[in-house]
Design a protein around this nucleic acid. Structure first.
Length: 744
RNA sequence: GCCGAGGUGGCGAAACUGGCAGACGCACUAGCCUUAGGAGCUAGCGCCCGCAAGGGCAUGAGAGUUCAAAUCUCUCCCUCGGCACCA
């Protein structure tokens, strides 16, 4: 009886599986019961190596894929590297390497590690986002977005990370800090490229009911899209330009039109106030000072200040359209310029923020909804109830507030002062970045020539997409790739790069030097996997029709409102264009979020120095042991703590599996049947921990009462998805010619 | 503040629609085998009383429903994750 030499066995089968193309599906013609696209979120290679958290995620996803393969499906389980983008670039900066060189090093290391974990990857279908053959099509996507009017430029107050020296999408700002480097994010007025994700806000929200996803991710997305139904109401301004012409109005968005009689003042955001100044409002110095101060205030400060609100009286009044009362207008940064109309009607009696503001500045508080008996008088009442004190619309008094809201909007609507309105919190996706290591945005700007003797027909074509035949716009290898911080990419100082001819008129033009957001790379990668070598198009439509959508998608919940939202958006867009044919436009009808693997109660992070590299464990215990150990800690969707030393117990378990040999004695057939049923159900639910314990119970029983060859085979098949190497080895030892991983 | 997940031995965790709480594993203890090896085997292992048989108490706290509650209802406390002035 030979020793269980896992190193030798694992290497042997990894090699053999590659040679036999065990995990390569029939892309043109799915075999067996049909296709099963088992996708997992691809890693971004930091070159510090594969994180045990990556392995945790991949193993859990792989077990499911192997299970499906053994059920007779033709499984595609692809892998690749999300190697473009800020994460990889920041890493290169940190270690003083060039990202383009570093990518090659990281790639090699990552793939080697990924080979060692024993996943059934389809290596022929791998993709790297920084490969020109890949980003050519990322750029192609951008061009299509532009052509269809879904990509546009706009000047806006955008998030600016002073450390990464680039703008960020709202989704990348976490509690006022940069998602990547945790620096405090500020605001900057810049002209940037956006994708119109808001066009799909309603669909992104509604479809959540139609997809089978982890509930917490759906909730996060629902909240992020943030639908509010309410009304726009106009308040006349008496004198913003110094004369009482009654021409100017301020429009507010409210979800509580029923409280209009309680609107005792108006608050406008500093951004809107600035716009008024731009059109000629002569604001007091104090107001100007306040606007300036809040514009420079980092997001984090506003959060840190908590509920302590600040504001300044604008010196003007508005007319409440219902009560006709004159109400003061204030400027305060607790009202956001980017949501609704940038102005609100403040109803301090029924809104806690307005209440707090009114208390601080001693503004009028007027109750218009009856609060329940016993409700404290020193708090705003925000619930529903009967309308009171609405004398000008005396018919509203006594109505339930929800009904009153309808009626009031209708009444004011007749006067052209109000209309129903649905607002979303979701904002357009800011896709340009002032960095280096990403796909250049494939656009060219053609300006009017400065010299008048140039032909009038040449120049001034505006923004033109790079012709598709000229893609990819290759990212040049430049020495100084560091972000400049001047609000432009380092490419902006590379003349050979930006100096181009206009594709339309041939005149002098300038290439866009910003690059695109990393999340654009990953928003469509699952499509390239099915046809990664295609040179004519991003993917073959016929193969796409066969293999998509993705049947099972597994990944971390941290991408709830980033990758997972952007991918759904592009899935819908591609469906609308007829490029793919997803039901409801959804690329991932089934998604499961795995839990977080932590270390001794704390998140693993490089700064804490508690990141576990799986290599060492694979070397000492074998990939199979580590796989089972990781899955045994806790339910996959719950996550786990890598503190337990029970890896020794798992090593012992596999050692005993190795020693188990069939005998004449017949074991408990009943227990086997029960275990088969249990494990099948457990894997389907991703409860790998209990599946493993069921196998242990079965093994204990076999050791006591013996096991026949047939029973032994059954045991190995149950073990195969979890421990693919040892089960393959023992399976072949029993005389089987084909891989256990395709055994029914 | 809001949303979500959770709280069960020394530890990770089981317990599918209410039905013997703690499966499985780790750690620990004793014994065997060997002899100082992080090897193997056997047995024990929630807490308290008891040599034992046995008894009592136990699923964050408190109440309730039920023949029966870790599981259902209510109130409260704590931990983790997400969102955060969105009108």
């Amino acid at each position: 009886m030979s020793k269980y030499d896992f190193q030798k066995i694992e290497k042997k089968w990894q090699k053999k599986w590659l040679e036999d193309k065990t995990y390569e599906p029939g892309l043109n013609k799915p075999k067996g019961k049909g296709k099963f696209y088992n996708l997992m979120m691809f890693p971004y290679p930091s070159a510090e190596g594969l994180h045990v958290g990556n392995m945790y995620a991949f193993t859990g996803a792989d077990i499911y894929g192997r299970f499906k393969r053994m059920q007779g499906y033709d499984v595609l389980e692809p892998i690749g590297l999300d190697g473009f983008g800020i994460h990889s670039e920041n890493y290169a900066l940190k270690i003083g390497a060039h990202p383009m060189d570093q990518a090659k090093i990281s790639e090699k290391r990552f793939y080697k590690q990924l080979e060692s974990i024993g996943n059934g990857f389809a290596w022929n279908e791998k993709v790297e986002t920084y490969d020109p053959e890949y980003y050519k099509w990322t750029q192609w996507v951008f061009v299509q977005m532009f052509k269809k009017g879904l990509a546009y430029r706009k000047k806006a107050s955008v998030n600016w990370c002073p450390s990464c020296k680039t703008v960020l999408a709202d989704e990348q700002v976490v509690a006022g800090k940069c998602e990547r480097c945790s620096s405090e994010v500020g605001k900057k007025e810049l002209e940037q490229w956006f994708f119109k994700i808001t066009d799909y806000a309603e669909k992104l929200l509604k479809n959540l009911e139609k997809i089978d996803w982890s509930e917490k991710v759906k909730i996060a997305q629902r909240h992020w899209v943030g639908k509010s139904e309410g009304a726009l109401i106009k308040f006349q301004l008496n004198d913003i330009l110094g004369q009482e012409d009654g021409k100017h109005t301020v429009e507010v968005f409210t979800t509580r039109p029923d409280t209009i009689f309680g609107a005792t003042f108006i608050v406008v955001s500093p951004e809107l106030a600035q716009k008024w100044i731009d059109i000629g409002w002569k604001a007091d110095d104090e107001v100007k000072k306040y606007i300036k101060k809040s514009a420079n205030k980092p997001e984090a400060d506003r959060i840190a200040e908590g509920k302590e609100k600040t504001g300044v009286f604008a010196g003007i009044y508005a007319i409440n359209p219902a009560s006709k009362e004159k109400v003061p207008v204030w400027v305060a940064d607790y009202v956001l310029g980017s949501y609704g109309t940038g102005a609100i009607m403040a109803v301090p009696a029924h809104d806690d923020r307005d209440w707090e503001f009114a208390k601080k500045y001693e503004l009028q508080i007027k109750k218009v909804i009856e609060s329940p008996v016993g409700f404290p008088s020193d708090k705003p009442y925000m619930g529903g109830g009967v309308v009171i004190n609405s004398e000008a619309f005396s018919w509203a008094n006594g109505l339930l507030n929800v009904d009153a809201a309808e009626e009031i909007v209708e009444e004011l609507g007749h006067l052209g002062l109000a209309k129903k309105k649905t607002t979303y919190r979701l904002r357009d996706w800011l896709v340009s970045r002032q960095r280096y290591w990403s796909p250049p945005i494939p656009m060219i700007h053609c300006e009017k020539p400065a010299s008048p003797d140039e032909s009038a027909s040449r120049g001034g074509c505006g923004w033109q997409p790079v012709p598709e035949k000229d893609l990819p716009v290759k990212l040049p290898y430049i020495k100084d790739f560091r972000p400049s911080g001047k609000g432009e990419s380092p490419l902006a100082s590379v003349k050979e790069f930006y100096k181009v001819d206009c594709p339309k008129c041939g005149g002098e033009a300038r290439r866009e030097t910003d690059v695109s957001d990393t999340f654009l790379d990953s928003a469509w990668y699952y499509l390239r996997y099915i046809d990664p070598k295609n040179k004519k198009e991003p993917f073959d439509k016929k193969i796409a029709k066969k293999w998509l959508p993705v049947d099972m998608y597994t990944g971390g919940a941290e991408h709830s409102v980033l990758h997972l939202l952007y991918s759904r958006f592009l899935g819908m867009v591609f469906t609308d264009w007829g490029l793919v044919d997803f039901k409801n436009g959804e690329p991932f009808p089934k998604f499961r979020a795995h839990g977080l693997l932590i270390k001794e109660g704390a998140k693993m992070s490089k700064s804490k120095g508690n990141v576990i590299n799986p290599d060492e464990y694979i070397k000492n215990f074998g990939a199979d042991t580590l796989r089972i150990y990781l899955m045994f800690i806790a339910p996959f969707e719950q996550g786990g703590d890598f503190r337990d030393s029970s890896i020794l117990g798992i090593a012992r378990f596999l050692e005993r599996v190795w020693k188990l040999k069939p005998s004449e004695k017949n074991g408990g057939e009943k227990l086997i049947n029960k275990t088969v049923k249990k494990i099948t159900e457990d894997i389907e639910k991703l409860h790998y921990n209990t599946a493993i314990s069921a196998l242990m119970i079965l093994l204990n029983d076999f050791e006591k009462v013996g096991v026949t060859a047939k029973q032994h085979e059954t045991f190995l098949k149950l073990l195969a998805p979890l421990a693919p190497h040892i089960s393959e080895e023992l399976w072949r030892e029993l005389g089987n010619k084909d891989s256990i991983h395709k055994a029914p």
